[in-house]
Amino acid sequence: MTADTYTDATQAAGEAMIQLEAVDKFFGDFQALKDINLSIGQQEVVVVIGPSGSGKSTLIRCINRLEKHDRGRVVVDGIELTDDVKMIQVVRRETGMVFQQFNLFPHLTVIENVTLAPRNVRHIAKQEAEDLAMTMLTRVKIPEQAHKFPGQLSGGQQQRVAIARALAMQPKVMLFDEPTSALDPEMIKEVLDVMEELAQSGMTMIVVTHEMGFARAVANRVVFMSDGQIVEVGTPEHFFTDPQEDRTKLFLSQIL
């Protein structure tokens, strides 16, 4: 098993932020993740691409325990994910997730959506939480929508609110599960712009997406998955111009 050479480099830089070792995940008899080994360092932006059913979503959902891995180790910021409920809560505090279907709470206003967790989990006072929320909403460029309900916003605006909601918990890692797949084309750019700004500000991000332009422009590393395995890992420059594996070449030829 060849070790990821990048791991050595990050070990030198400091503890890896996220570590997956020999991770397997089964759904019944179907194996969704096969021997996943991946290390992600601080402030790194990793983009995961691959065909449908390759296990990309399962991978990042194992990182905040929305899915439970069957074998191997998942370590986030030094905390290993086991059945320990308390530790799971800690990990979830430090990771923020943005979903394909936004999953905003429809019965709460935008600002209530964003302040819910900070107030009730981090016990931040109301005014402070609202100030924090407005900062985040400004960062995603929709502060004027604070008192609207999610149902009154467009898809792109909703997804940006979802990003603000995740950021309001001030996580160390942001996980994106196909954030633009459910958006109309004209709204994809506004969300990708926000994500790019986030990356440049130094956030550690793992992004599952089909947006190759984003991967090329923003990623530090690109991971290609197929059939539950990591097939190839590399920088965007090498990945898109000089892929090594045949499966990678096949996939890229079909989409570029």
């Binding site: 990048y6 397997d24 069957d70 395995q229 990591i230 097939v231 090594q244």
Partner: peptide, 17 residues
Amino acid sequence: MIGGPTAVATPETSERP
């Protein structure tokens, strides 16, 4: 920062759950 793209060796068989 990194050498070229790296390939990860793939296991031959899928194991039992």
